[in-house]
Design a binder for these strands. Structure first.
Lengths: 115, 115
DNA sequence: CTAACGTGCAACCATATGGTTGTACGTAAC
DNA sequence: GTTACGTACAACCATATGGTTGCACGTTAG
Protein backbone atom coordinates (compact mmCIF):
# COMPACT_ATOMS: atom_id res chain seq x y z
CA UNK A 1 0.00 0.00 0.00
CA UNK A 2 1.28 3.40 -0.98
CA UNK A 3 1.39 5.86 1.91
CA UNK A 4 -0.50 9.06 1.20
CA UNK A 5 -0.54 12.25 3.23
CA UNK A 6 -3.41 14.51 4.20
CA UNK A 7 -3.29 16.28 0.84
CA UNK A 8 -3.88 12.98 -0.95
CA UNK A 9 -0.45 12.74 -2.55
CA UNK A 10 1.98 9.84 -2.23
CA UNK A 11 5.48 10.52 -0.94
CA UNK A 12 6.76 9.89 -4.42
CA UNK A 13 4.40 12.42 -5.97
CA UNK A 14 5.51 15.03 -3.46
CA UNK A 15 9.14 14.23 -4.25
CA UNK A 16 8.47 14.79 -7.94
CA UNK A 17 6.69 18.09 -7.37
CA UNK A 18 9.50 19.62 -5.29
CA UNK A 19 12.19 18.07 -7.49
CA UNK A 20 10.55 19.61 -10.55
CA UNK A 21 10.48 23.02 -8.88
CA UNK A 22 14.17 22.78 -7.93
CA UNK A 23 15.38 24.06 -11.30
CA UNK A 24 15.29 27.65 -12.54
CA UNK A 25 14.47 26.74 -16.13
CA UNK A 26 11.58 24.57 -15.05
CA UNK A 27 10.22 27.21 -12.68
CA UNK A 28 10.38 29.66 -15.57
CA UNK A 29 8.46 27.27 -17.82
CA UNK A 30 5.78 26.96 -15.13
CA UNK A 31 5.57 30.74 -14.81
CA UNK A 32 5.28 31.19 -18.56
CA UNK A 33 2.69 28.50 -19.13
CA UNK A 34 0.61 29.57 -16.14
CA UNK A 35 0.35 33.02 -17.68
CA UNK A 36 -0.13 31.90 -21.27
CA UNK A 37 0.06 28.46 -22.91
CA UNK A 38 2.93 27.77 -25.31
CA UNK A 39 4.16 25.02 -27.65
CA UNK A 40 7.29 23.08 -26.75
CA UNK A 41 9.30 24.66 -29.58
CA UNK A 42 8.07 28.09 -28.54
CA UNK A 43 9.44 27.39 -25.06
CA UNK A 44 12.65 25.93 -26.49
CA UNK A 45 13.26 29.19 -28.33
CA UNK A 46 13.29 31.06 -25.03
CA UNK A 47 16.25 29.24 -23.50
CA UNK A 48 19.89 28.88 -24.39
CA UNK A 49 19.83 25.09 -24.64
CA UNK A 50 18.83 22.41 -27.12
CA UNK A 51 15.26 21.59 -28.01
CA UNK A 52 15.72 18.12 -26.50
CA UNK A 53 16.84 19.61 -23.18
CA UNK A 54 13.73 21.79 -22.95
CA UNK A 55 11.65 18.80 -23.99
CA UNK A 56 13.10 16.88 -21.03
CA UNK A 57 12.32 19.71 -18.63
CA UNK A 58 8.72 19.77 -19.84
CA UNK A 59 8.56 15.99 -19.36
CA UNK A 60 9.76 16.36 -15.75
CA UNK A 61 7.12 19.02 -15.11
CA UNK A 62 4.46 16.86 -16.72
CA UNK A 63 5.52 13.89 -14.58
CA UNK A 64 5.04 16.07 -11.51
CA UNK A 65 1.64 17.28 -12.73
CA UNK A 66 2.82 20.88 -12.83
CA UNK A 67 2.00 21.23 -16.51
CA UNK A 68 -0.22 19.37 -18.98
CA UNK A 69 0.45 18.78 -22.68
CA UNK A 70 -2.24 18.84 -25.36
CA UNK A 71 -1.69 17.83 -29.00
CA UNK A 72 -2.64 20.47 -31.54
CA UNK A 73 -1.72 19.48 -35.06
CA UNK A 74 2.01 18.90 -35.11
CA UNK A 75 2.49 20.98 -31.97
CA UNK A 76 2.13 20.08 -28.30
CA UNK A 77 0.62 22.86 -26.26
CA UNK A 78 1.95 23.17 -22.71
CA UNK A 79 -0.25 24.61 -19.95
CA UNK A 80 0.73 25.29 -16.37
CA UNK A 81 -1.50 23.45 -13.87
CA UNK A 82 -2.50 25.72 -10.98
CA UNK A 83 -3.94 22.76 -9.03
CA UNK A 84 -0.48 21.26 -8.56
CA UNK A 85 0.77 24.58 -7.22
CA UNK A 86 -2.12 24.58 -4.79
CA UNK A 87 -1.23 21.09 -3.64
CA UNK A 88 2.37 22.14 -3.01
CA UNK A 89 1.09 25.09 -1.00
CA UNK A 90 -1.08 22.73 0.99
CA UNK A 91 2.02 20.72 1.89
CA UNK A 92 3.90 23.76 3.13
CA UNK A 93 0.82 24.85 5.07
CA UNK A 94 1.06 21.65 7.08
CA UNK A 95 4.59 22.53 8.14
CA UNK A 96 3.36 25.89 9.35
CA UNK A 97 0.67 24.11 11.34
CA UNK A 98 3.27 21.91 13.00
CA UNK A 99 5.23 25.00 13.90
CA UNK A 100 2.16 26.69 15.33
CA UNK A 101 1.24 23.63 17.37
CA UNK A 102 4.75 23.71 18.81
CA UNK A 103 4.24 27.32 19.85
CA UNK A 104 0.94 26.33 21.45
CA UNK A 105 2.69 23.62 23.48
CA UNK A 106 5.31 26.14 24.62
CA UNK A 107 2.48 28.47 25.66
CA UNK A 108 0.95 25.64 27.65
CA UNK A 109 4.24 25.09 29.44
CA UNK A 110 4.47 28.77 30.31
CA UNK A 111 0.87 28.75 31.53
CA UNK A 112 1.63 25.82 33.82
CA UNK A 113 4.68 27.64 35.19
CA UNK A 114 2.51 30.65 35.96
CA UNK A 115 0.15 28.65 38.12
CA UNK B 1 25.45 40.19 -10.11
CA UNK B 2 23.27 37.51 -8.62
CA UNK B 3 19.67 37.71 -9.78
CA UNK B 4 17.21 37.84 -6.91
CA UNK B 5 13.45 37.51 -7.03
CA UNK B 6 10.75 39.43 -5.23
CA UNK B 7 11.12 37.32 -2.09
CA UNK B 8 14.79 38.31 -1.84
CA UNK B 9 16.21 34.88 -2.66
CA UNK B 10 18.67 34.08 -5.43
CA UNK B 11 17.75 31.45 -7.99
CA UNK B 12 20.32 29.19 -6.43
CA UNK B 13 18.83 29.57 -2.96
CA UNK B 14 15.39 28.70 -4.32
CA UNK B 15 16.86 25.66 -6.07
CA UNK B 16 18.36 24.49 -2.79
CA UNK B 17 15.11 24.96 -0.86
CA UNK B 18 12.99 22.92 -3.27
CA UNK B 19 15.76 20.36 -3.79
CA UNK B 20 15.99 19.88 -0.03
CA UNK B 21 12.22 19.34 0.19
CA UNK B 22 12.28 16.77 -2.63
CA UNK B 23 13.21 13.89 -0.32
CA UNK B 24 10.89 12.09 2.11
CA UNK B 25 13.52 11.62 4.80
CA UNK B 26 14.45 15.30 4.70
CA UNK B 27 10.82 16.40 4.84
CA UNK B 28 10.38 14.15 7.86
CA UNK B 29 13.41 15.72 9.55
CA UNK B 30 11.93 19.16 8.94
CA UNK B 31 8.59 18.04 10.40
CA UNK B 32 10.24 16.56 13.47
CA UNK B 33 12.53 19.49 14.19
CA UNK B 34 9.78 22.04 13.62
CA UNK B 35 7.74 20.31 16.28
CA UNK B 36 10.58 19.63 18.72
CA UNK B 37 14.35 20.09 18.37
CA UNK B 38 16.56 17.00 18.24
CA UNK B 39 20.23 16.04 18.11
CA UNK B 40 21.69 14.55 14.95
CA UNK B 41 22.12 11.11 16.54
CA UNK B 42 18.57 11.27 17.88
CA UNK B 43 17.39 11.84 14.31
CA UNK B 44 19.71 9.14 12.98
CA UNK B 45 18.07 6.64 15.35
CA UNK B 46 14.71 7.29 13.71
CA UNK B 47 15.67 6.14 10.21
CA UNK B 48 16.83 2.90 8.72
CA UNK B 49 20.09 4.26 7.35
CA UNK B 50 23.58 5.06 8.59
CA UNK B 51 24.40 7.99 10.86
CA UNK B 52 26.49 9.52 8.06
CA UNK B 53 23.54 9.40 5.65
CA UNK B 54 21.30 11.28 8.10
CA UNK B 55 24.15 13.69 8.75
CA UNK B 56 24.26 14.43 5.03
CA UNK B 57 20.50 15.02 4.89
CA UNK B 58 20.77 17.48 7.77
CA UNK B 59 23.62 19.21 5.95
CA UNK B 60 21.47 19.58 2.82
CA UNK B 61 18.63 21.04 4.91
CA UNK B 62 21.05 23.38 6.66
CA UNK B 63 22.44 24.52 3.29
CA UNK B 64 18.90 25.37 2.22
CA UNK B 65 18.23 27.24 5.47
CA UNK B 66 15.40 24.86 6.38
CA UNK B 67 17.05 23.88 9.66
CA UNK B 68 19.72 25.39 11.90
CA UNK B 69 22.28 23.51 13.98
CA UNK B 70 23.44 24.61 17.43
CA UNK B 71 26.33 23.03 19.35
CA UNK B 72 25.45 21.77 22.80
CA UNK B 73 28.29 19.89 24.43
CA UNK B 74 29.18 17.02 22.17
CA UNK B 75 25.78 17.14 20.51
CA UNK B 76 24.48 19.28 17.68
CA UNK B 77 20.89 20.35 18.19
CA UNK B 78 18.83 20.62 14.99
CA UNK B 79 15.91 23.04 14.79
CA UNK B 80 13.49 23.47 11.91
CA UNK B 81 13.41 27.02 10.58
CA UNK B 82 9.84 28.21 9.97
CA UNK B 83 11.09 31.33 8.14
CA UNK B 84 12.43 29.23 5.28
CA UNK B 85 9.06 27.49 4.98
CA UNK B 86 7.44 30.90 4.80
CA UNK B 87 9.79 31.95 2.02
CA UNK B 88 8.95 28.83 0.03
CA UNK B 89 5.25 29.61 0.49
CA UNK B 90 5.91 33.14 -0.74
CA UNK B 91 7.40 31.67 -3.91
CA UNK B 92 4.37 29.49 -4.59
CA UNK B 93 2.10 32.46 -3.86
CA UNK B 94 3.68 34.26 -6.78
CA UNK B 95 2.71 31.44 -9.12
CA UNK B 96 -0.86 31.68 -7.92
CA UNK B 97 -0.77 35.41 -8.60
CA UNK B 98 0.40 34.76 -12.16
CA UNK B 99 -2.45 32.33 -12.60
CA UNK B 100 -4.97 34.81 -11.22
CA UNK B 101 -3.67 37.58 -13.46
CA UNK B 102 -4.19 35.23 -16.41
CA UNK B 103 -7.77 34.71 -15.36
CA UNK B 104 -8.18 38.47 -15.12
CA UNK B 105 -6.92 38.88 -18.67
CA UNK B 106 -9.35 36.23 -19.89
CA UNK B 107 -12.13 38.06 -18.07
CA UNK B 108 -11.10 41.24 -19.85
CA UNK B 109 -11.34 39.46 -23.18
CA UNK B 110 -14.81 38.20 -22.37
CA UNK B 111 -15.85 41.65 -21.22
CA UNK B 112 -14.69 43.09 -24.54
CA UNK B 113 -16.65 40.44 -26.41
CA UNK B 114 -19.76 41.35 -24.46
CA UNK B 115 -19.62 44.98 -25.52
C1' DC C 1 42.91 8.28 32.76
C1' DT C 2 40.28 5.57 29.86
C1' DA C 3 36.27 4.18 27.56
C1' DA C 4 32.20 5.35 25.21
C1' DC C 5 29.53 8.74 22.68
C1' DG C 6 28.39 12.24 19.10
C1' DT C 7 30.10 14.32 15.28
C1' DG C 8 32.65 15.52 11.01
C1' DC C 9 34.78 14.17 7.00
C1' DA C 10 36.98 11.57 3.26
C1' DA C 11 36.79 7.82 -0.01
C1' DC C 12 34.11 5.05 -2.54
C1' DC C 13 30.07 3.21 -5.27
C1' DA C 14 25.62 2.96 -7.95
C1' DT C 15 22.26 5.53 -9.88
C1' DA C 16 19.92 9.87 -11.23
C1' DT C 17 20.15 14.24 -13.54
C1' DG C 18 20.90 17.65 -17.09
C1' DG C 19 22.93 18.36 -21.00
C1' DT C 20 24.42 16.97 -25.89
C1' DT C 21 23.80 14.95 -30.90
C1' DG C 22 21.53 12.05 -34.15
C1' DT C 23 17.62 9.59 -36.05
C1' DA C 24 12.78 8.74 -37.07
C1' DC C 25 8.14 10.07 -37.88
C1' DG C 26 3.70 12.56 -38.23
C1' DT C 27 1.85 17.08 -39.83
C1' DA C 28 1.75 21.34 -42.52
C1' DA C 29 3.07 24.18 -46.36
C1' DC C 30 4.19 24.79 -51.03
C1' DG D 1 4.79 14.81 -53.64
C1' DT D 2 8.45 16.97 -51.55
C1' DT D 3 10.24 19.93 -48.23
C1' DA D 4 10.29 21.97 -43.85
C1' DC D 5 8.60 21.96 -39.09
C1' DG D 6 7.54 20.11 -34.43
C1' DT D 7 8.12 16.34 -31.75
C1' DA D 8 9.75 12.00 -29.74
C1' DC D 9 13.28 9.11 -28.40
C1' DA D 10 17.75 6.72 -27.98
C1' DA D 11 22.63 6.87 -27.02
C1' DC D 12 26.05 9.06 -24.83
C1' DC D 13 28.66 11.99 -21.39
C1' DA D 14 29.90 14.66 -17.13
C1' DT D 15 28.48 15.69 -12.82
C1' DA D 16 25.36 15.46 -8.78
C1' DT D 17 23.02 12.66 -5.41
C1' DG D 18 22.22 9.31 -1.84
C1' DG D 19 23.98 5.75 0.20
C1' DT D 20 27.99 3.04 2.38
C1' DT D 21 32.38 2.25 5.54
C1' DG D 22 36.27 3.82 8.01
C1' DC D 23 38.88 7.07 10.65
C1' DA D 24 39.85 11.22 13.45
C1' DC D 25 38.69 14.15 17.16
C1' DG D 26 36.38 16.69 20.87
C1' DT D 27 33.26 15.75 24.90
C1' DT D 28 31.20 13.24 28.59
C1' DA D 29 30.98 9.39 31.93
C1' DG D 30 33.10 5.96 35.02
Amino acid sequence: MVVRNAIGLSDDEVNRIFRALADSTRRDIVRRTLGREASVSELAGAYDMSFAAVQKHVAVLEGAGLVTKHPNGRERIVRGNPDAIGRAQGLLDRYEQIWRSRIDRLDDLLAETDE
